[in-house]
């Protein structure tokens, strides 16, 4: 069960992770964000950037419609 949802399927780099970063910043520590994304660039860069910022990547699953579902847990302790 996620606390917030974000659709970045229509965004292009670098706005893909900018949207995710702003969404994570707006969530309390420990909250879960579900991100719907599409394409190779966000699939590769968004989970990596989230980890580098100290957040947890809980899962990444391909969906039947060609998009992917990324589940992140916001972590703000390292900042």
């Amino acid at each position: 069960m996620s606390d917030a949802h974000l659709d970045i399927t229509r965004e292009i780099c670098p706005m893909t992770y900018v949207r995710v970063k702003l969404a994570l910043e707006g969530l309390p520590d420990g909250a879960v964000l579900e991100v719907r994304l599409k394409g190779q660039e966000p699939l590769k860069n968004v989970p990596r950037s989230a980890r580098e910022d100290g957040h947890e990547v809980l899962s990444l699953d391909a969906q039947a419609d060609g998009t992917s579902r990324l589940i992140l847990r916001a972590r703000h302790g390292g900042r």
Partner: peptide, 16 residues
């Protein structure tokens, strides 16, 4: 957000 997107990406900056 559009104008400062690349700056927001910096760990030391972010949205806040």
């Amino acid at each position: 957000i559009q104008r400062y997107g690349r700056q927001i990406l910096l760990r030391e900056v972010g949205g806040k």
